[in-house]
Design a binder for these strands. Structure first.
Lengths: 224, 224
DNA sequence: CGTAGTCTTGAGTATCCTCAACGAGGGTGG
DNA sequence: CCACCCTCGTTGAGGATACTCAAGACTACG
C-alpha cells in the first residue's frame, strides 16, 4: 500500500506541473514539532526522508502514537481548523515538505487531476489507520509486536525485505502499541527465542522465519 | 465531529444539485453484507438510518470491528480495487445509500464543490479512525468501555445527551474494543457501581456523572 | 412454551503492568 | 583518553488485570 503512496510522492516531485512548486522543504532535528496541539491547520505535509510521528497526549500524561510517518506519507490533512494531535520529527535530518492548504485548495478546484491525487492520499491515510487498528486489536504482546514488525517490513524502503532496520526506539514502539517498553522488549526476545527473528544490532532485525512470525502475529487480511 | 458529517449528509440530501440523484437507497436486514472480502470497490456508501459495521476477519477466525457506521457516516471509500474489509448491517431496517464510484468520480472532476465534499468526508473518516485508535490505546477495560460510551454519546443522534441507547450488542462492543464480552460486561457493572452510569434497560444507559466517567476513561484531547 | 441469542456472574489461570536493578552505547567535559 | 552522565534497552520478582471455562438469568421470537 505504501508503494502506491511512494509512487504518488515520486510522481508529484518528478513532474513539473504538480504539487512540487508549492512545497517548502525543511530539514528538521529530532524532537522538533511540525505542528502542536491547537495549532491552526493551515498546511499539509509530506515526509521526504527518515521518520516523523503523530501522537496524542492524554490528560494522564500518557502519550499515544497514532501513526509513524515514513517517506512518501502525507499528513496534517484534517477537516478541522486546528490540530488535535501533535506531529514531531523522530530522526535528525528528517526532511519535511510543507504545502499551504489555501493554495492547494485553489489548485485542486482548478485541476481535477490534483483533486484525484488528494483523494488518493486521504484514502491511503485511511488504509494506514485501519492497519494500525488491526494491530492494536491484537490480544497478546507477541501478536502486537509481531504484526508491528511485519507492517514495518512492508512499509520501510526495500519493501518486504528480510532485514528490517527499525528507525524508532522501543519507547516509541510501546507508545504506538499501547504497551510498556518492558513488554515490547520481552516480546522481541520471545520472538528471537522462538526462532522467528534474529538481531544484528539493537534495532536491526532479520526476519528468519516469516511464516512463523505471521503465525505468532495471527496475521491479517492479505495485501494484494 | 459527527455533527459536521451529519450536516454534510443533510446538505447532500436536501439540495437538489448534489449527490442525491446518484444515490440508490436500500433498506437492509440485520446481518446483511453491504460488501464482502475481495468484492470490487465499485461504490461508496452512506448510512441513512440505524447502524452498520465495518470489520476484518482474522485467519484466527476472530472478528475485529474497525468502525461503527452511524447515520451520516460515509464508507467504502478506498484507493484499492477490491475491499479488504467486510461491511454489514447491524439493525433490521437500516437504510443504506449507494453511490457508484465511476459516476461520482466524473461528477467530482466537473464540480469542485463536490470534490471539496468528498475530501471533507474522507477527512471525517480519518478523524473517526483516529478517535478509535485512541480508544483502543487505552489500558484498562474500564477506560476502554468508558471512552467508548463517551464516543457513542457524542456520535449518536441527540448529541452528548445523558441518555444513550446503544444500538449494538455487547459482543459487537467487545469486537470493537478488542476484548471479551465478559470483560465488557464487568466493566459496565463496575461503572454502574462507581456511580458514573446507570441502566434503564440492558442497552439504555444514563450518564449520571459525566466527569466521573471521563475520569475513569482517562479522557482525550478536547473536541473544540 | 420452548429455544436461541443475549447478558451477567463466578472461579482459576495466564498475561501484562508495576517497581527495581543493571548493562550497553553515545555524548560531553575534565 | 578516560570518567561521567544520560538515554536506551534488557531482565527479574511480585501483584493487578483480563482471559478461559463454566453456569445461570434474562429477552425475544417462533
Amino acid at each position: 500500500m505504501d508503494t502506491l503512496e511512494s509512487e504518488l510522492c515520486r510522481r508529484n516531485f518528478s513532474r513539473p506541473n504538480a504539487l512540487r512548486p508549492f512545497a517548502a522543504v525543511t530539514s528538521c532535528e529530532r524532537g522538533q514539532a511540525i505542528y502542536g496541539l491547537g495549532d491552526p491547520a493551515g498546511a499539509w505535509y509530506c515526509v521526504l526522508s527518515d521518520l516523523a510521528k503523530k501522537s496524542a497526549v492524554m490528560p494522564n500524561g500518557r502519550r499515544q502514537i497514532v501513526a509513524f510517518l515514513l517517506p512518501g506519507n502525507f499528513f496534517g490533512m484534517t477537516a478541522r481548523h486546528s490540530h488535535v494531535m501533535v506531529s514531531e520529527v523522530v530522526i535528525d535530518g528528517t526532511r519535511i515538505a510543507r504545502f499551504p492548504r489555501q493554495r492547494l485548495e485553489t489548485i485542486t478546484d482548478a485541476d481535477p487531476e490534483v483533486g484525484r491525487l488528494i483523494r488518493a492520499l486521504a484514502f491511503e491515510s485511511i488504509s494506514r489507520l485501519q492497519a494500525s487498528l488491526l494491530i492494536l486489536g491484537r490480544i497478546t504482546a507477541v501478536e502486537k509486536v509481531g504484526s508491528f514488525l511485519i507492517e514495518m517490513a512492508e512499509r520501510l524502503p526495500g519493501g518486504s525485505a528480510k532485514a528490517v532496520v527499525l528507525p524508532m526506539s522501543r519507547y516509541d514502539i510501546a507508545d504506538y502499541l499501547a504497551m510498556l517498553v518492558e513488554t515490547v522488549s520481552r516480546a522481541l526476545t520471545d520472538l528471537k527465542h522462538s526462532g522467528a527473528i534474529s538481531f544484528s544490532g539493537r534495532r536491526q532485525i532479520r526476519i528468519v522465519d516469516r511464516s512463523a512470525l505471521e503465525e505468532d502475529s495471527g496475521w491479517m487480511p492479505a495485501p494484494p
